[in-house]
């Protein structure tokens, strides 16, 4: 048996060194995440309105939060966000799975197809938003031209002035833009599945559907969950796409919570109330992330092996 002491000492030394080594990382997190966050929380407890400097900057406790929770615009913005997140993430998962399965097949030109499918993902969101805005433009937009041309519409439709139809370009644009990301994540998962499992299933006489249902899907779960987490959190914070596409209109009927917060902070310059909104958005996204990790933690670590 080797003497325990020296090893122990070296371990202690190493752990001390390790502590020093993680210090910069911890320091950076404190500086770029914790500090701004606590500042925002502090700000949210004050009345701070850049446009009404004569009111000063008094401490108001939870007033800003109470105002937010009693404000119908806040609740409808939250509702829009949940609606947007549910619809887009659902569509993106289904389409992404389909694309991934297709790309996983061996066919000629697979490389170029895999590269091509990533193009929408590579386009900056604001540019994509403007692109879709022009396509859905009421006067010269290509969508109206095509739909009128094939007889679906009898006259050009002004998409952005109807509270329901204004969502159509928003959702299409997001699905178009982010499905490739989901597809790629799922494709990575598909390629980790051992081909011998399918062989075994075939020998047992399993149909293609049963193979998909009982081999592919269970083994894809970790990849799907990762995609789900990323996409839900992203969709929940959606801002730039809608900012460029509808600006939240007509009225405020496509305004997500992040855009409402932005308008409060940077148009109305109500820093106190806007900070309260930011804190609420942070709390909700953080809770979502925690819930995912809690619920799916086992699968996530499973994915790593």
């Amino acid at each position: 048996m080797p003497p325990a002491d020296p090893l122990h000492g070296r371990e202690r030394q190493e752990s001390r060194l390790a502590r020093w080594l993680v210090l910069p990382a911890v320091g950076t997190i404190v500086l770029v995440a914790l500090f701004p966050l606590s500042w925002t929380v502090w700000e949210s407890l004050h009345l701070h309105d850049l446009r009404m400097p004569w009111l000063g900057r008094p401490f108001v406790g939870a007033d800003n939060y109470i105002e937010a929770l009693g404000n119908p615009r806040f609740w409808s913005a939250l509702g829009h966000t949940v609606f947007f997140a549910t619809v887009t993430v659902g569509l993106e998962l289904m389409l992404g799975l389909g694309f991934a399965l297709a790309m996983n097949r061996a066919f000629r030109g697979r490389g170029p197809v895999r590269a091509a499918i990533l193009i929408p993902w590579a386009i900056p969101t604001v540019v994509a938003g403007l692109l879709w805005r022009f396509m859905f433009d009421g006067q010269g937009g290509i969508v109206n031209a095509v739909l009128v041309g094939i007889g679906v519409l009898d006259q050009a439709r002004v998409w952005f002035i109807h509270p329901q139809s204004a969502w159509v370009p928003v959702i299409l644009a997001d699905v178009w833009k982010t499905t490739p990301f989901v597809a790629l994540l799922i494709l990575a998962g598909l390629q980790n599945i051992d081909a011998s499992l399918y062989e075994a299933a075939r020998i047992d006489g399993a149909s293609a559907w049963r193979q998909f249902r009982h081999v592919t899907l269970p083994l894809l779960k970790p990849a799907i969950l990762v995609a789900l987490i990323f996409r839900t959190l992203d969709a929940f914070r959606v801002f730039d796409l809608i900012y460029a596409l509808t600006g939240g209109g007509p009225g405020t009927s496509t305004e997500p919570i992040a855009l409402y917060t932005f308008n409060t902070l940077f148009q109305t310059l109500r820093f106190g109330y806007g900070s309260a909104l930011s804190v609420i958005v942070f709390a909700v996204t953080f809770a979502l992330a925690l819930a995912y990790i809690r619920l799916l933690g086992a699968d996530l670590t499973g994915a790593r092996r």
């Binding site: 446009r51 009404m52 002035i161 109807h162 509270p163 209109g249 007509p250 009225g251 405020t252 009927s253 308008n263 148009q267 109305t268």
Partner: peptide, 23 residues
Amino acid sequence: TPVYSQLSEILQIHLHRALTRQR
């Protein structure tokens, strides 16, 4: 009024809602 911009922002939203037949 010193709070014109905020008043205007409120008015813009409600006018637009009326003109897009939401109200």
